[in-house]
């Protein structure tokens, strides 16, 4: 087996591990993003699907982390994984903005053992890397994927504690708060890559309800020199916002759309060499009527 084939296979494995960047769309939606009072619950659906926001493919199995307005970690309750979606509840007891998110950081790549190419098992984390590569392995080629999927819920007035950045992967810095979106007012978000404002990121914005319309209504935007992007919301509702450094693959029922891992942006035609690092960011925002 030549190295090139191996790498194509590697990207196919990554496709399964990080579907956000590929044909299937990964998302979470909360029962409410703007709540009043002092003691509320929200329930969240987490899924990977083609149509937004319908459950038609896979649940998100990873249990996310809740960051409370005061910066402490909250609790995910009643987590349940169904056939097409996972659900869980979050108890809101503080005033301000909560972040509910999952960061998946994995290593992918390959090595050779006794002349035979082997894949690093998908879902391998950095700290487990040494344990999955046997002694005597050669030609070890690895890279990492950092994929972030997060949503925001605000009880009372919006706050900014949960937007403290980590410097890892793509992160959102609110110029407009994501829980303060209204039709008729353009929103500005800034995106950082590894802590620095990231120009030329591809920002894909798609309103929910795809099943009931013919036009995808997708906006293809790019971040400017300062990492900022301005988004217009034509209608109230939920919007899926996906951010990647690479041009997103064409969506829709094209070849391979129903087969995860059958290609991907780095599939056919990918130059040989070490696998490239993959980063992605996805959020779902709710836009209210004025």
């Amino acid at each position: 087996m030549n190295i090139r084939t191996t790498l194509i296979a590697a990207s196919a494995v990554v496709a399964l591990a990080a579907p956000a960047a590929l044909a299937h769309r990964m998302w979470m939606i909360a029962s409410s993003t703007t709540v009043s009072g002092a003691d509320n619950w929200v329930t969240v659906d987490a899924a990977v699907s083609n149509d937004l926001f319908f459950f038609d493919h896979q649940p998100i199995r990873v249990v996310p982390t809740v960051t409370q307005p005061d910066g402490t970690e909250g609790t995910v309750e009643n987590h349940s994984i169904g056939k097409f979606r996972a659900t869980f509840d979050v108890h809101l007891t503080q005033q301000g903005t909560y972040k509910i998110g999952a960061l998946s950081q994995n290593v992918f790549g390959s090595y050779k053992l006794n002349g035979e190419s082997k894949m690093i098992p998908r879902g391998t984390t950095v700290d487990k890397l040494a344990s999955v590569i046997p002694a005597g392995a050669t030609d070890v080629q690895t890279s990492e994927s950092v994929s972030r999927n997060e949503i925001f819920v605000t009880q009372g007035a919006p706050t900014n504690t949960v937007f403290k950045t980590s410097g890892k992967g793509i992160e959102l810095v609110p110029v407009t708060h994501p829980n303060d979106l209204v039709v008729g007012e353009a929103a500005t978000f800034q995106f950082l890559l590894d802590g620095k404002p990231a120009p030329n990121l591809f920002v894909t914005v798609i309103p929910g309800g795809i099943r009931y319309r013919d036009n995808l209504k997708q906006q293809d935007l790019k971040t400017g020199a300062d990492g900022k992007v301005s988004i217009n919301w034509p209608d109230p509702g939920l919007y899926w916002v996906n951010v990647t450094p690479n041009r997103p693959r064409e969506e829709g029922p094209g070849p391979g759309a129903g087969a995860p891992g059958a290609g991907g942006p780095q599939g056919a035609g990918r130059p040989s060499g070490p696998p490239q690092r993959r980063v992605s960011y996805v959020t779902t925002v709710e836009v209210l009527a004025p």
Binding site: S32, S36, G37, L288
Partner: peptide, 11 residues
């Protein structure tokens, strides 16, 4: 204070 839950609907 349950009545406050729906205040956000006065959008």
């Amino acid at each position: 204070g349950e009545g406050t839950k729906w205040l956000r609907d006065i959008r």
